[in-house]
């Protein structure tokens, strides 16, 4: 059963456990590939994760002159292949969210690979496994469908309004999980 990464941003408490967990994935060389931002640092403690959305037609891969960024059969947009990456950094500019990171020493791009060593066997990614708040979840399409009160009016999943990029494998709860919740009493 196909599962996806699903994000409920308002749950985030800024604990950065997702970053710590990302350093622990196999082949990650203890470097995290995700981000957590303070949304309004001098005002409140709101934070949000910034994750690779594993675009269906990824700008990062399209921009790569060396075809170093492969798309796995699960839809995961992988980190650059060491033997192919020429270090041009096109992808870091092409990605609308600035996801790919660059290692200047190795002259190599690295990015979220959706913990492919785990997710190819249906095991949740490290970040979504540990996230203490369920900001990051690993769900089946059916489970996501059951949260449908979170769909946009136009019935589409998009990553931002207006569209920055097309369809993505990672889904984000917009406009927000508490929208439209009726109070119990």
């Amino acid at each position: 059963m196909k599962k996806r990464l699903y994000l409920e941003l308002e749950n985030c408490i800024g604990c950065r456990s997702c970053l710590a967990a990302c350093t622990q994935c196999g082949g990650h060389e203890e470097r995290n590939r995700n981000y957590v931002y303070d949304v309004n640092p001098l005002v409140n403690r709101q934070t949000m994760p910034l994750m690779c959305l594993h675009c269906v037609n990824p700008a990062c891969a399209r921009s790569c002159p060396a075809q170093a960024i492969q798309i796995h059969e699960t839809g995961a947009v992988l980190s650059a292949l060491v033997e192919k990456c020429i270090g041009c950094q096109n992808c870091t500019i092409a990605c609308p969210y600035g996801i790919p990171k660059f290692d200047t020493e190795q002259n190599l791009m690295y990015k979220c690979d959706l913990c492919i060593d785990r997710t190819k066997d249906g095991i949740p990614p490290m970040c979504a496994s540990v996230c203490p708040t369920n900001t990051l979840q690993w769900l089946t399409d059916e489970e996501i469908e059951n949260k449908k009160q979170h769909n946009l009016d136009n019935g589409k999943w998009v990553t931002s309004m207006p569209y920055l990029e097309g369809e993505t494998n990672v889904k984000i709860s917009l406009p927000g999980i508490l929208q439209g919740v009726t109070k119990l009493f």
Binding site: N11, I13, G14, C15, S17, N44, R45, P132, T133, N134, I177, L178, V181, T182, K183, L184
Partner: peptide, 28 residues
């Protein structure tokens, strides 16, 4: 959220069900 973070998915779930969260703290 900082001292017992792994309680938080249960705390948020109360609000998601329409329940209430009251917090007394000098800090937000």
């Amino acid at each position: 959220a900082e001292c017992h973070p792994t309680s938080m998915f249960r705390v948020w779930a109360v609000q998601e069900r329409g329940g209430y969260l009251i917090v007394a703290d000098p800090r937000e």
